[in-house]
Design a protein around this nucleic acid. Structure first.
Lengths: 214, 214
DNA sequence: GACGATAGATGCATTCAGTGCAGTATTGCA
DNA sequence: TGCAATACTGCACTGAATGCATCTATCGTC
């Protein structure tokens, strides 16, 4: 399968070394307290070489072009004939939230913490998110020709992602440290915000409230 | 009213001079093609002084803490007893869109263009937007105690603002130059995206289409 | 296995944003 | 008028990022 050339393998290894060195140093001395030169030295490369792997210091912590996009695109591709655009997005959103590995991986956790605290990281994260939205909107638009135009699709995607982002922001700043509880509150909040789109059979928290009225 | 001390007046004048110089130079040589030193020289101040007025180069184009927030907060304060949170946001959103002066003022137009093209500006803009959302969510939460918690309010606000942002992004990149047409398409797209929240009497584009079919 | 082409690594110099500091000028106030 | 607070400025410095020239390792080919 992975018949990569020696050059390619070496490059991957160096890349990995950079990321690991960066994570190590960021955790020890903080983001601002770590210079690119420090990272390069720890990864045993020249400072100049760093920038042939990553365009900027932030980039180290935003490696892969997020698997989330792919998950949503898959969900769009797997839509049923009865599904409205909003249904598809709703399902995708839940899948993504459920499978969110953002609390497990060490890099992901660090990234989260830095996004919350370092302006440069926050800005970068938001930009990538907006790009991802655009990408998803394109797919959604293509999946519903005649029904959704580019702008409408972007608005719809924006609404759904915006709800998640808004909730997540508050959750992170409140600083709860229990991932399970946070995930549940996130689901509740977005469900509530997006309630007008929910079908009856899709309203878990209404159902649970019927069973156990407050 | 404006009994400012001489110092204060002088400071305002210098501030104004910096902004004007910056706008001038950005329009002539582009954002990246203009250094802080250039701006300072044009504004007849020392380079160092620039940073006692603005914390960074971007900041020059994000002056006042946006009147938009105030407009939304006002809309929340002016809510009727029958209004649901979504109703309030919907009305506020329309007011803001309608009064949007972002196409008239020279600074605003330049800012728009740079947000679209310069990563640093985009990042900064998104950060400010998220902060604004948070602020609005706080007010909304306070206005509906017992009904909305912090997280839920943030999700709701995020959904509405996200819809507008998503649509706006596509509209800007499509690069239509007719502000009126863009404003109309924006309204249509967000209306469509937020349709599940619309009351019947709140659907202007359905109504106007009945009156004057295209 | 040798060889030329190519891609990657590196050092060096440079630009530019942003900060800390110290000294000077200006303003507000008594 | 004089004193204290505040603003302005130059200077030196750090750190990110880029361009360029050079050197080295790898690759495909014969």
């Amino acid at each position: 399968m992975a018949e990569l050339s020696l050059r390619e393998r070496k490059r991957q290894r160096t890349r990995q070394a950079i990321v690991e060195a960066a994570v190590e140093l960021f955790e020890e001395h903080g983001y601002e307290g770590t210079t690119v030169a420090d990272i390069a030295e720890a990864a045993e490369i020249g400072t100049r070489t760093f920038f042939s792997y990553f365009a900027s210091k932030e980039e180290v912590l935003f490696p892969e072009s997020d698997s989330r996009i792919r998950a949503v695109v898959d969900a769009i591709a797997a839509r049923g004939p009865e599904d409205r655009p909003a249904d598809v997005l709703l399902r995708a959103l839940r899948t993504v939230n459920r499978d969110s590995d953002d609390m497990v991986s060490r890099v992901a956790a660090l990234r989260m913490r830095l996004i919350r605290t370092v302006p440069a990281m926050r800005g970068r994260g938001l930009q990538l998110q907006l790009d991802a939205q655009r990408e998803i909107a394109r797919h959604l638009c293509a999946a519903y020709p005649g029904e959704l135009d580019e702008v409408g699709a972007a608005a719809l995607v924006g609404a759904f992602v915006g709800a998640v982002t808004g909730a997540l922001q508050v959750l992170m700043e409140t600083g709860g440290d229990d991932p399970v509880a946070m995930s549940r509150r996130l689901q509740e909040a977005t469900d509530a915000a997006l309630r007008p789109w929910l079908h009856e059979q899709d309203k878990p928290y209404v159902r649970s409230r019927e069973q156990a009225p407050s």
